[in-house]
């Protein structure tokens, strides 16, 4: 058939395409595999080249040491504490951003109030200001609010999101006005309309945004670095940075690798779990 002529017409073509795909996958996956392998060897093995390409016997010992708080360079804070910190921060940022951006988009799209468009443009303009630009004033505010070394200090400055607001605004604007009117006639007030109709209709949008924002929160570097002093409050990314010394011999590479593996796992898990939602959202458009 005609459309089959274009892609993978011949057997050799398909084989070539697959070879390229496999090569690409290997190139991307190899460093991660290498990290996983390194996390199962002792420091001595890692420091003595070449590094073996198959997993070693030290896996249990390494992971146990990391989770039990054996990493001296970060003050003996265990990796599970780091994971907990990062999870709280990433969840806080993702959930907070979604709540705030949905609420503001709801107000801008469905309510008529003075300076509505001015508010919208104000939000829109902040898109052009990256966190780094306002980092000094934000830091000062956090200090004055005594939020240094707190979860609130880690989360709050990052949860206002112009991008997500814009995204929800665009989505809300595609909701037919008749739906709102039908709900009004049915007796739904603003809150009910939001909860019973807008929220379920936004489910796939929320899921997609959640994945993106969770990973955004998980990988934050500059802000957590500034706003935390105590090792107890480090996120895993900051801790990883602190573990690495200038001198190779001074760096517990085997534990760095363990931490790296553990740092990768939650975002991967989120993507894998939420992928079903993406597909669902693509297959059944409910509008």
């Amino acid at each position: 058939m005609a459309e089959h002529d274009m892609v993978g017409a011949s057997r050799s073509g398909r084989i070539a395409a697959h070879l390229f795909l496999i090569l690409g996958a290997v190139v991307v996956a190899f460093p991660i595999y290498y990290v996983a392998v390194a996390s199962t060897h002792s420091l001595q093995t890692i420091l003595r080249p070449p590094l073996p390409l198959i997993p070693g016997p030290e896996a249990y010992q390494n992971y146990h040491e990391a989770l039990a708080g054996g990493i001296g360079r970060i003050g003996g804070v265990s990796v599970d504490r780091l994971l907990l910190n990062t999870t709280i921060v990433a969840l806080g940022i993702a959930v907070g951003k979604i709540i705030i951006s949905m609420a503001s988009a709801y107000a801008i799209v469905f309510f008529r109030f003075p300076l509505r468009m001015a508010m919208f443009w104000l939000i829109f303009i902040t898109l052009m200001l990256p966190v780094e630009v306002r980092i000094l004033p934000t830091y000062k505010v956090m200090v004055q609010l005594h939020l240094i070394d707190t979860y609130a200090g880690l989360i709050l400055p990052l949860i206002a999101s112009a991008t997500a607001t814009l995204l929800f605004r665009q989505f809300f604007m595609t909701i037919p006005n008749e739906l709102l009117e039908a709900a009004r006639v049915d007796g739904a007030g603003p809150w009910r309309f939001f909860r019973d109709i807008l929220l379920p209709l936004s489910a796939t949008n929320i899921a997609a945004l959640f994945v993106i924002l969770f990973i955004y929160g998980w990988t934050q570097y500059l802000w957590p670095l500034l706003v935390t002093n105590s090792n107890e409050m480090n996120t895993i990314v900051i801790a990883l940075r602190k573990m690495i010394s200038f001198a190779d011999a001074d760096t517990p590479w085997h534990l760095v690798m363990v931490t790296a593996v553990l740092a990768i796992l939650p975002p991967v898990l989120i993507v894998v779990l939420m992928q079903r939602w993406f597909v669902k959202g693509l297959v059944e458009t409910e509008k």
């Binding site: 009117e181 039908a182 709900a183 007030g189 019973d196 209709l201 509008k287």
Partner: peptide, 20 residues
């Protein structure tokens, strides 16, 4: 009065059914 307080029911041109 708000629509809900008027004790009316309305049928819309595009039906306006809640899709979910």
């Amino acid at each position: 009065l708000e629509p809900r307080a008027r004790d009316i029911a309305m049928v819309f041109q595009n039906y306006a059914l809640y899709p979910h």
